[in-house]
Simulated scan of single mutants.
Amino acid sequence: MFAIVVSSQFYCVWLCIAVLTAYDFVYVTCCIHVILQLRLLKHNIKDALDKYEENPKQRLCCYIRHHQFLYSVFHRMRNIFSVMLLFHYLVTLGSSCFVLLQLVLRDMDAVSYASQIITIIFFIVQFGLYTFPAEGVAFEFLDVPNAIYISKWYRNKVEIQKLVLYVMMKSQQQQYFSGAGLIDINVETFDSVLRKAISFCAVFKNVLNN
């Protein structure tokens, strides 16, 4: 029975490692792909507006369709990773508070202290792998109007200006990945997790001292 339990534990550990690694890898890879596609799209739109052509409408329509496609990819990713992002937010916040409390309240030897530090670093780094790529995707979408604005859009016809105006209006609606629609996942969320964990430990320690 003991051997079965130990085998099950090893199986679950390796399964969790494989699933988390694959899931994180897919998420980060998709975010990087969308970021690179948006950067290429900004360059192409600016290039089409800067180079004077008789009828750049066909090229711009192609780029606008690609912009809409990237938006659809973003919304699909947002729906797919929504629950997972909320789960990691709660796990990171709870684990950080728990580990910091142990560091503050318990007397530990060097090995235990180092293991707790490594644990909290692991949770924070993993949550950073979700927040920073999400921030990058949101920034690139928001930066599309800036790429259009610094181009020579004013040299083109009115119908061309109307096309790029649509893209600018669409991109002004800044959107982030969300945790089940409850919180936005970005760099500010990453910062708030650290501040909340430290504040919780400080308040809890003051309560015990009083």
Rank of each mutant, 00 (worst) to 15 (best):
L163F: 03
A110N: 08
F74L: 10
H67N: 12
L208R: 08
Y23L: 12
F69L: 06
I64P: 00
D24N: 12
D24P: 00
A110M: 06
T131L: 02
H66Q: 13
L129R: 12
T21A: 09
G136M: 08
K46M: 07
N44T: 09
N156K: 15
R155I: 15
F122W: 07
V34M: 06
E53S: 14
K152H: 14
L129H: 14
Y113I: 02
L100Y: 14
I198H: 03
F10A: 08
K57T: 11
R39K: 13
P56F: 07
V111Q: 11
I64M: 09
L194I: 13
V6A: 15
S199D: 10
A114Q: 13
N186V: 01
R65Q: 15
K196T: 07
A22V: 05
V99K: 03
V73I: 08
C31M: 09
G179I: 07
F2P: 00
Q102T: 03
M1I: 15
K170P: 00
V13T: 10
E140L: 02
C30W: 10
H66A: 06
A48M: 04
I150F: 11
F87T: 10
H88D: 11
I124S: 13
I64N: 05
Q175N: 15
R195D: 02
M108T: 09
K170T: 07
V83N: 14
L163T: 03
G128D: 13
V73Y: 01
I32T: 10
L90F: 06
L100V: 02
S115G: 01
Y63N: 09
N44Q: 09
F204I: 04
S96G: 01
V83L: 11
E53L: 08
F177K: 06
Y166T: 04
I160W: 01
S72Q: 10
Q174V: 06
E53F: 01
M77R: 00
V19K: 04
I117A: 08
T189A: 09
R76W: 09
I150Q: 10
A48Q: 06
E159W: 08
T29N: 10
Y63F: 15
M1C: 12
